[in-house]
Simulated scan of single mutants.
Amino acid sequence: MSVLTLAHLYPREMNIYGDTGNVLVLRKRLQWRGMDAKVVGVHVGDPLPPDTDILLGGGGQDAAQGEIGRDFVSRGAELRAMADDGVVMLTICGTYQLLGHHFLTKDGRRIEGVGVLDVITTGSDQRLIGNNNIDTDWGRLVGFENHSGLTDLGPGAQPLGRTVAGRGNNGKDQTEGAVRDNVFGTYLHGPVLAKSPRFADELLSRALARRGEDPELEPLDDSLALGAADVAVRRPR
């Protein structure tokens, strides 16, 4: 039985909008197929598991991000090496921003990132908030955005998708999230994978392929998840 290692970054501090649910979704979708996941919580000062297959991080309040920011940046070389080695990463909101080059606050303070994703974020007085769904190569992704950091993509990153109803990365260019190889960043909370089953399976398939295992996954009945996505899309922002 295949067992994937899921490294969950800062599960206490970076879970303000239920992003831990992404970990639960991936593990359950493996279990439904006769596989499983070993979930390792990574707190400040903890080592990253050397056998990490999927790295997940969520969003948090600004105070929480300050507490973990130095720890995250101290892992920069290791995170860049993991990305270069094809480790699958899904980062939401705050950890998405920290994967970029830097965050420039609205008062001009520069917070360094780790440079895994070719993005920069600038603080603003504008808050982008509400239900959002985006068109991607893996179907529709559905979640909830709530951020005042405006993110712009450089040439080394592609958008995860295009916004249909929400504001996305910056409220200007209709992009949402960023992709580089097996690294994904997005502002979609919710948790996003609960209502985006095809994307959840894409992450699992990539992790299995990287290990040299069969990436083809047995189909599941996703009618409940897709129905929940339909309801969320119809709700007013």
Rank of each mutant, 00 (worst) to 15 (best):
M1R: 15
S2F: 13
L4H: 03
L4N: 03
P11T: 11
R12L: 10
E13H: 14
I16N: 08
G18Q: 02
R27G: 13
D36S: 12
K38N: 15
D53K: 12
G58T: 05
Q65A: 05
E67I: 13
G69D: 14
D71T: 01
V73T: 03
G76S: 15
R80M: 04
V88M: 04
C93W: 09
G94M: 06
Y96S: 00
L99S: 03
H101W: 07
L104M: 12
G108E: 07
E112V: 15
V114S: 01
V116I: 04
V116K: 00
D118M: 00
I120A: 14
G123C: 06
S124H: 07
Q126M: 14
R127M: 08
L128A: 14
I129G: 05
N131S: 10
N132E: 15
T136K: 06
E145R: 12
N146V: 02
S148V: 09
L150R: 15
L153Q: 05
P159S: 06
P159M: 03
L160T: 03
T163A: 01
A165L: 05
N170T: 10
N182Y: 02
G185L: 00
K195V: 09
S196Q: 03
A200H: 09
G212C: 07
D214T: 08
P215N: 11
P219N: 12
D221Q: 08
G227V: 09
A228V: 14
A228M: 15
D230R: 13
V231N: 11
R234V: 01
R235V: 13
